[in-house]
Design a protein around this nucleic acid. Structure first.
Lengths: 132, 132
DNA sequence: TATAGCGCTATACTCTTGTATAGCGGTTAC
DNA sequence: GTAACCGCTATACAAGAGTATAGCGCTATA
């Protein structure tokens, strides 16, 4: 196997590289983070706009996830003292830079699908389940 | 904002690119997938070897996660008819190619940490929570 | 006055993940 | 025979993530 570079420390389940991967995972974790971030990649949005754009999300979850993303430095929340108040959510620099990560994930996902479906045409389970 | 290339379809929460990202997420999802894959990046391993290398994992979870990874084409399970039987787990091509994805995630995680800690030295919450 | 939109929060529940602990059938080592 | 290793599985429970539903204080509109 080729050189493992920075991932060498994954093995012992500690070390800063595993922490780093976990940070990334946690930022994208849960059912709603991806839709939210995806939606915000198009620019700032208000609460209700997000709620409308993301099918089936409840205000409770949207609120919770937005708070989470804010606390973790992925989005900023700006309140305008207009009447009535307007609240805008926008990706931070970190948030926007997730685009690169997501694109690599898209790439892997697509290739894996190709390889995987190629291998198993039975497909009763598997990919159907993965992306449920 | 710059061109969003393949991620454009993230917005509507459907389309093959979101599916692809979700595939990738699901493969890495849960508390134990990362340690397991990390461990297997070093080459094939037996059940007990994995159990020993991954602190605090229970055989129940190891078994479950390995099955999951196998079903999703990330690892192969090979049983040798030795006495007693030996079972070896090894990353598939897809599994090995996750290395690239993980490295991008490491990169993002590290940069985000730098940016984030730079911004907020209060740190009472936040990063400490992220990588808990 | 009543209705509707905004940006949420509260309460209660279910459903999924993960933990803890025990044990099975087989084999070798003492 | 009994203790220990291998590769698991079974059962029961706890904690967290997500859902369903309601409502709050505010303002603009009819």
């Amino acid at each position: 196997m080729s050189r493992l570079s920075k991932l060498e420390q994954v093995k012992n389940c500690s070390g800063e590289f595993v922490l780093a991967v976990n940070d990334t995972m946690n930022v994208l974790n849960g059912k709603w983070k991806l839709p939210i971030i995806g939606s915000l990649l198009y620019g700032k949005k208000r609460f209700k706009e997000l709620e409308r754009e993301i099918p089936k999300i409840t205000p409770r979850m949207l609120s919770k996830e937005l708070k989470d993303l804010e606390v973790n430095g992925i989005v900023t929340r700006t309140v305008y003292a207009s009447i009535p108040v307007t609240v805008e959510y926008e990706l931070t620099k970190s948030g926007n830079s997730l685009k690169t990560v997501l694109e690599v994930m898209v790439e892997w996902g697509l290739q894996h699908r190709k390889r995987f479906i190629g291998k198993k045409e039975k497909a009763g389970k598997n990919l159907m389940e993965i992306s449920h």
